[in-house]
């Protein structure tokens, strides 16, 4: 059964790519730049989307083109994230699972999920690099850093939670940030 916002394409010409590009490319570029962080990779991502759209077996229902394209773009971004991992980070398995779950319950363009090796957007290498830098922190530094930036706890709550002086918490987090920054710079992420 086709997803609710797509219908089977009756012929190759049913998706007017040029018309879609003219109307939606600026919007897609804006979204892609926010996802990728730079115009070059965003352009690659959008180009990849158009290539997939051209080869799809499903077409958007009339009036649903915008949502169809934007959701497709996000799915492509997630897909591209999971094929370039040099070292597994569990989140990407989660992203993949989540993405596949969404396929079953929400409108989807029905485009091929096969990645194009030329397209590199989602900063997977960056995530891996950051993970490696986090692994190098002292245990207390990592613990406080996680509580502050992942659990979003203010310093004072961390101090209460860990029975540590407020200044120690703040200084430990600060030094952990400096170490991460330097570690990322050594890995080429400025």
């Amino acid at each position: 059964m086709p997803p609710e916002s797509t219908v089977p394409c009756l012929d190759e010409d049913q998706v007017d790519i040029d018309a879609l590009r003219e109307k939606y490319e600026p919007m897609l570029m804006r979204f892609a730049i926010n996802l990728c962080g730079n115009p070059h990779d965003a352009e690659d991502l959008v180009q990849d989307l158009w290539r997939q759209v051209a080869s799809t077996q499903s077409c958007p229902q009339a009036g649903a083109e915008q949502a169809w394209l934007m959701k497709s773009l996000r799915h492509r971004w997630i897909d591209l994230g999971r094929y370039r991992m040099r070292r597994p980070v569990t989140l990407f398995n989660d992203l993949e699972t989540r993405s596949n779950d969404e396929d079953e319950r929400s409108p989807d363009p029905g485009v091929s999920r096969e990645p194009q090796p030329e397209v590199r957007c989602f900063q997977r290498e960056r995530t891996t690099a950051l993970r490696e830098c986090l692994d190098k922190l002292q245990e207390l530094q990592r613990r406080f850093l996680m509580l502050h930036f992942f659990e979003a706890l203010p310093h004072i709550e961390i101090a209460d939670h860990c029975d540590a002086p407020l200044g120690t918490v703040a200084a430990t987090i600060h030094r952990a940030k400096v170490r991460i920054k330097e570690c990322m710079e050594r890995k080429g992420w400025t």
Binding site: N34, G37, L91, Q123, T127, L134, F149
Partner: peptide, 16 residues
């Protein structure tokens, strides 16, 4: 355009 970078950062912390 910093959004993708933020998601990448959170991904690293989440994996821990």
């Amino acid at each position: 355009p910093a959004a993708g970078q933020l998601l990448s950062d959170i991904a690293a912390l989440r994996s821990i």
